[in-house]
Amino acid sequence: MSDRRRLTGPANLIKPNIPEIVSNIDNKNQENTNSTSSIPSFFIKHAIINNANGSAYLEINNTIIEVSIFGPRPIRGSFIERGSLSVECKFLNHIIQPMQDSEPSKTGMSNIEHRLSSYLESCILPCILLEKYPKSTIDIQVSIISIDKSMVNSKSNSSLLWLMNWIVICTSIALIDSKIEIKDVISSGQIKLTRNGKIKIGIEDDEVEECIDALISFMNLRNDEIVGIWLEGNQSNLTESEMSLIIDECNKMSKIIRANMNSYLINNI
């Protein structure tokens, strides 16, 4: 008898008031995406570098990105009525860069770094209110501290676009931290459209079938304006309906990431 009482507890037992477990953001993501895979959870932190006007740090799986923003600060030379922007993306020295066959050059930027930088610049330029910053320069510096192993070995393009996606997002957070005025937060979506019309997210490495990789960046609160498109793969047979499918899916992913960024920002102010 006494044993059973121990199992069921005393007669006058009061149940403690435990709140229901609130589903976290990751679960929401899974519900929202109708794709085969969803966005892995990621870690963001802003204001990590005292010396910079704005900075942010982002981790997703083994990909680690750090962005620092300097400026607006004075510029020498002729009068410019709007701010000037410069962007540099750099892999740290010890990283084997994706899609890099030869040794990276010791001076200057590698081919990949140039491509990343110019995509980022074309995204950021329409977003910053440069006319508010005359006679000054804003420098954006992106360090890629670590990348996923699969990215190094893979010959696919999706890994590079995946990396670019998170660079854009990390830069957006750093821009907000710097208090530079921007029209909207940029977020982006990256997907893979296979020949048979399937949509995949992330960098899974099943390179059997031919596919198109797409990265599209948006200003979601500005009528979903597109600020950057990067397509890789054989696009010769890309139809209009496929393109609009790509844009829609990227937009969906972009909005999920944007929602996460918004809640991060509001909770961390």
């Binding site: 600060r73 004075p74 510029i75 020498r76 030379g77 002729s78 410019i80 709007r82 701010g83 000037s84 922007l85 410069s86 962007v87 540099e88 993306c89 930027m109 770094e113 140039h114 930088s117 110019s118 610049e121 330029l125 440069l130 320069t137 420098d139």
Partner: peptide
């Protein structure tokens, strides 16, 4: 630095 569409060559920091 990937100098940009918006930066003039004669401007230095």
């Amino acid at each position: 630095i990937a100098s940009s569409q918006s930066t003039q060559l004669n401007s230095t920091i």
